[in-house]
Amino acid sequence: MTTRAEFLAAVRDRLREPIPENHLRPLTEAGLGEPIRYAVELSDPEARFLEAATGVGAEVVGRPEDDLRAILERVRDDVRPARAVVTDDPECKGVAPILASLGVEVLAAGGPSDVATADLGVTGALGGVALTGSLVMDSGRARTRLASLLPEVHLALLARDRIAATPGDFLRELSRWFPDGLPSNIVFITGPSRSADIELEITVGVHGPRKVLVALR
């Protein structure tokens, strides 16, 4: 079996001489410089987030001024879930008892076969991305990565002051978002699960949620 040292030595060996240049199209050493400049209005991250998220098929079911109970009641009436799974994200505080009082059985997050029986997954979001309408999930806070994945409907609660303008703004500040180091799983979620593998026709809910609901807090 090849060892790390052998593998890397073979690579190093190939790099002893400078790489030949294509004189017509030279490979410059230009540094990274400034972040990507976008031709999209980003001065109001919250407004752009809502526009982009709706554009990719997520539904906005609550604004910061809305009462949590009223939001969950609307979701219950719309989705009619029998069973919900709720994560440990701080934004989810208070969700489980309200859902229970609304007649929804609430599961504690657990193994895949449990979570798979829920028809609603309620999670917090560590942050959002305005440009793309993405939600950022952190497996460390939530303690699970399946609540946003296995149920047919995913409801995410996102604090309005945690929306980065662009993916790059988020990625450049990872140490601020994750002061204790990166969790095992970060996922940017942008709208419901989709496939275009049959005649490029967009179909939603292929493997992940069919519906993504967002409530701003």
């Binding site: 793309t132 993916p167 799983n185 996922v187 979620i189 942008t190 709208g191 419901p192 992940g208």
Partner: peptide, 10 residues
């Protein structure tokens, strides 16, 4: 502009 899921596994 971005795919539905971008996972970063550490």
């Amino acid at each position: 502009p971005i795919t539905t899921y971008v996972s970063a596994i550490t």
